[in-house]
Computed example of a mutant assay.
Amino acid sequence: MSKVKYYYDNESLSYKKIERKPGRRIGLIALGIASSFLAGFILLIIYFNIPQIETPKEKALKRELNNLKIQYSVLNKKIDIAQEVLADVQHRDNNIYRVYFEANPIPEEQRKAGFGGVNRYQYLNGFDNSELIIETHKKMDILQKQIVVQSKSLDEIVKLAKEKEKLLTAIPAIQPIKNENLTRMASGYGMRMHPILKYRKMHNGMDFTAKKGTDVFATGDATVKKARRSRGFGNLIILDHGFGYETYYAHLSAFEVREGQKVKRGEVIGKVGNTGLSTGAHLHYEVHKNGKVVNPINYYHGDLTAEEYDIMLNQSTLENQSLD
C-alpha cells in the first residue's frame, strides 16, 4: 500500500493531501521503460565490443578447448616417444635379429612408406585447430603402419628362430674334401688365369686337388637339386640347402646320389674327377647365397682349426692359375 503524503498550506494554515496527477504517473512509467531499454542497449554494445566479457557457457567451452589442446600436445609427445622406441626396435631388427638369422633387412622405404591417393584428412579441415588435429592423425597412421610392418618382421624372426637348429645344420660349414685326402688347395675365389681359355676371368669357387675317386662330402643338410653332366663343369652336383643356400660340386668322376634325394652334412655325394673343362683331378666347389656367388672361404668353421683356416685363407688369396 502506497504512503499518503501531505503538504502545509500557508493560506489555510492547514495540512492538505498531495494528489498525484495521472499524466505525470504515466510519464514516469514511460521514462523508466525508456531508461531500461537505453541501459540494455548500452550494455549490449559494451558486450559486443569488449571480448573479455564471456558468458559462463562460453567460458566452459573455452576451458574444454584449451584442455583438448593440452591433451593433443601430450598425445603428440607420447607418439614421438613411441616412434623413438619403435625406431630402436627397427634398428635392432635390421642389424641384429635379421643379420643373426641371415634374413634380408627391411628397406627404409618399406618401413616408412606414406599414404598416397586422395586427401584422407579432408574431413578434419575447417576447425580452429585443424592443423594440430591433422598432424596428430598423420603421426598415428604412420606409427600404426610401421608397427604392422615390424610385427610381421618379428613374426618372421620367431619363425626363423624356431628353425634355427635346421638352419645351423643346413648352412655349408665343412670342407667338401677331408684335409688328409687333399693334395693341396689349388686355387681360391677371385680373378684367376683360366688354364684352358688362357685369360683372366672370375673364378667363382675354390679348387681342391685330390686323387681321382676321392670322396666328396655334402657340406650341409640339403636336397639334391641336380646330379648330371653339365657343360664346362662336367659331372655336376648342386645341393639346395634351403634358407637361400646352394652349393656346387663340379668335375666329378662319379655320382653317389640322385636328384631329389635328401642328404646330411658329411654324407658322401660323389667322387673327385677330371670331367668338363679341367686340367687335372680336382673338385671345383662353389657356395651361392640368394642366387649370388659368395666366397666359400667364409664357410669352413665346422671342421677347421684356427691354424688350418689361416693356412687355407693364405693359399686362397694367391692369384695363381685355376684348374678350371
Score class of each variant (00 low, 15 high):
Glu108Asn: 12
Glu307Gly: 02
Ile46Trp: 15
Tyr245Gly: 02
Leu252Ala: 01
Tyr72Leu: 15
Lys289Glu: 04
Ile238Gly: 04
Tyr309Ser: 04
Gln90Gly: 00
Leu304Trp: 12
Ala34Gly: 13
Asp155Val: 01
Phe127Gly: 14
Asn95Asp: 13
Lys271Asn: 07
Glu180Asn: 13
Ser278Pro: 08
Leu167Ser: 08
Leu13Thr: 05
Ser73Asp: 11
Pro176Ile: 07
Asn66Tyr: 02
Lys262Ile: 11
Phe115Cys: 01
Asn179Phe: 04
Ser253Thr: 02
Glu163Phe: 02
Glu267Lys: 03
Leu68Ser: 03
Gly23Gln: 07
Asp80Thr: 11
Glu319Asp: 08
Thr247Ile: 02
Tyr309Lys: 10
Phe101Cys: 01
Asn295Asp: 15
Leu283Met: 05
Ile134Pro: 12
Gly291Tyr: 01
Lys211Gly: 12
Pro195Ala: 09
Ala103Ile: 04
Leu61Trp: 04
Gly188Gln: 09
Val263Met: 00
Ile297Cys: 00
Tyr248His: 14
Ile42Cys: 09
Tyr248Leu: 14
Gln175Ala: 12
Pro172Cys: 09
Gln122Asn: 03
Val89Ile: 14
Arg229Gly: 11
Gly190Glu: 10
Ala281Pro: 11
Asn290His: 11
Ile45Glu: 09
Thr275Gly: 08
Glu165Asn: 15
Phe115Trp: 10
Asn104Thr: 14
Ile79Pro: 00
Glu108Val: 13
Ile133Phe: 07
Tyr15Lys: 07
Ile238Met: 07
Leu182Glu: 07
Phe115Gly: 09
Ser151Ala: 02
Pro51Asp: 13
Tyr245Asp: 08
Met202His: 11
Ile33Leu: 15
Leu65Glu: 14
Glu267His: 00
Ala82Gln: 09
